[in-house]
């Protein structure tokens, strides 16, 4: 029997990986299509208002934009797979060179946020979920609702007003010198991380709370309590493992939200990450940079989801029996 279970588990994970690869391919197709099909192409973006039909045609030929779309796509995809992300129109540099440091800065921001977010979300979720409709639970549920409802850029602006403008404790913008790690300048990270935490906690605490409340009120914890097992042991033995499974879901959910949150927070605080690059290149229609950055962000996001899925299957045996 153990052998069968192991086999199906491996099969389940293999299936998830296959789906992920397929999804990545579809995403590459969509990213390319969205930036190609819509009106306005790279050539007209470069020439702007000075464009004439002749100069446009010439530049299109020079950039290879007059070739069939499928050929352009295959060329681009081939480059991406072999590590060539294309060349920025605005900076004239290879995209890889342009965003190398920035990917690192964004990952640091994401990692610091997650490291702080997950334990706080679990603690708050467990505390309020254990006493559903108690004072703390009421407070937490209204606060989290407000946290979800306020846009990150508003939260960030209000936090900057409070902590930088009025109290003067922190710098209002995160002007990290190029080439230096954000970890060397912790004062520049406080406001971005705080903003992400406020918004992130709001959605994740709600999720953990529901998971814990269900476990705490379920038949099996009731049974344990009736058998005279102490409340502390009930929590440790039955409620917390369920909260842990919720924690993995929290990471997956946070990953989805974090992608958008980080882009916005980087713009609010002028944090030199890859999200800022993405927005600036969208504004200036620097298509090669948009394609590369969007693909990288989507890939990280899809891979995080895959990891969370696999971890969840390993943590919660019940899920393995499905199919």
């Amino acid at each position: 029997m153990a052998g069968v279970g192991r086999h199906s588990l491996r099969g389940l994970i293999a299936r998830r990986i296959a789906i992920t690869v397929g999804l990545l391919w579809i995403i590459s197709l969509l990213v390319f299509a969205a930036t190609q099909v819509l009106p306005g192409d790279t050539a007209s973006a470069i020439l702007g208002k000075t464009a004439t039909p002749e100069s446009l045609a010439q530049l299109r030929a020079q950039l290879g934009l007059d070739r069939p779309v499928t050929e352009q796509y295959l060329d681009w995809l081939g480059g991406v797979v072999s590590g060539d992300l294309g060349r920025s129109l605005a900076a004239g540099l290879p995209v890889g060179e342009l965003i190398g440091d920035r990917v690192g800065a964004t990952l640091v921001l994401a990692a610091v946020t997650l490291v702080l977010l997950v334990p706080i979300a679990l603690a708050l979720g467990v505390l309020s979920g254990m006493r559903r409709d108690g004072k703390l639970d009421q407070l937490v549920s209204w606060l989290t609702l407000a946290g979800v409802a306020v846009p990150e850029f508003v939260t960030g602006t209000l936090l900057a007003l409070l902590l930088a403008t009025w109290l003067g404790w922190l710098p209002a913008v995160s002007l990290i010198p190029p080439g230096e790690s954000p970890l060397a300048h912790p004062q520049f990270m406080v406001l971005p991380v705080l903003t992400l935490l406020v918004a992130g906690l709001a959605s994740t605490v709600r999720l953990v709370r529901v998971g814990v409340a269900e476990a705490a009120e379920s038949g099996y914890t009731e049974m344990a309590r009736l058998s005279g097992i102490s409340e502390r042991r009930v929590v440790r033995r039955w409620v917390l493992p369920n909260a842990l499974a919720a924690g993995v879901q929290v990471i997956a959910l946070t990953a989805q939200w974090l992608v958008g949150g980080i882009v916005i927070v980087e713009m609010v605080f002028q944090y030199p990450g890859v999200g800022q690059t993405l927005v600036q290149s969208v504004q200036s229609q620097d298509i090669p940079v948009v394609q590369a950055v969007a693909l990288i962000i989507a890939a990280i996001y899809v891979l995080l989801n895959l990891l969370a899925d696999v971890a969840l299957v390993l943590l919660v045996p019940k899920l393995r029996t499905r199919r």
Partner: peptide, 25 residues
């Protein structure tokens, strides 16, 4: 499901890239 595979902000930014953004997009 394919639409859901994209984080919303990323989807909107990619859509806006072709035009530099507009109210229609």
């Amino acid at each position: 499901d394919v639409v859901l595979a994209f984080p919303p902000i990323l989807l909107l930014l990619v859509l806006a890239a072709g035009t530099g953004g507009s109210t229609a997009i």
